[in-house]
Amino acid sequence: MEKWPNNKAWFLVLPAFIIVAFSGIIPLMTVVNYSIQDIFGPGEAVFVGTEWFKEMLGNHRLHDALWRQFMFSGLVLLIEIPLGILIALAMPKRGWGVSASLVILALPLVIPWNVIGTIWIIFTRPDIGLFGVGINSLDLLEVPFDHTAKPIYAWITLLAMEVWHWTPLVALLAYAGLRAIPEAYFQAAKIDGASAWATFLYIQLPKMRGVLTIAVLLRWMDSFLIYAEPFALTGGGPGNTTTFLSIYLVKLATMQFDLGPAAAFSLIYFLIVLLFSFAFYQALLNVGRGEKA
């Protein structure tokens, strides 16, 4: 759709800009301010230049957290995207089943994030949890299942929680994409005698490209920012094995009160996210263009 060139449109954007800037730019400036000073107390600060940045870039705990974060977000995408597509393909296309499926799918998405953590603690605890008690009664594991006991158990619990929580989002997106494909495509495929696999590969998957890009974008971003769920479930432990970037940052800022390094870390973190956002955003724009052409 051709847009009208008109710079007065800025007046419509201005209120939104101001309210987001109030919550977005002013605090960010404060962070920049922190990151280049050593703050001893109110009114007592020394300019330190890039010292905190150097310190944080060389900080091995940051490297570890970053590595863990990439692992986690990567695994999340690898599991959730294919699973979400499968669910969308299996969902009914008409009748009462559609509404029912949509409501059940959306349910995990409206649960507060720390309650998600609570649900999974209750569900997996070895003394009262259905999963914990269930898996231990099978007596298959060398060390009884307890997400606080072994890093691998903590990771499995976190991943299970994450997949449980967010796969429905991918499924809903994929479903929206599938529903938008005109019936004629499938009729044509049927006439040509295309197999279900060929139909999926050459019709459904390409047509879902737009929504899947959004799904990848949202899942990558949000899993990169994850805080409340691991905070509630593992608190970053055992040890630091589930300390992701946000958890480490909050620890640094509010528990050790290292404002300077925490601010420098914040900016580095933000920059990484920004870089990925930009790449995904460009991909998203190109998808839109490709469909119009």
């Binding site: 009208w4 060139p5 008109n6 800009f17 977005g24 960010l28 971003m221 509010t254 955003y281």
Partner: peptide, 30 residues
């Protein structure tokens, strides 16, 4: 954004989105 073309519209839209993608933990102290 849906109707008009204006100076800096693309940049503005992206900047708005970056706030959706900013780690909330970054904004905690400020």
């Amino acid at each position: 954004f849906s109707r008009y073309k204006f100076i800096g519209d693309g940049q503005m839209f992206f900047w708005l989105l970056t706030n959706r993608m900013a780690p909330p933990a970054v904004f905690l102290l400020p």
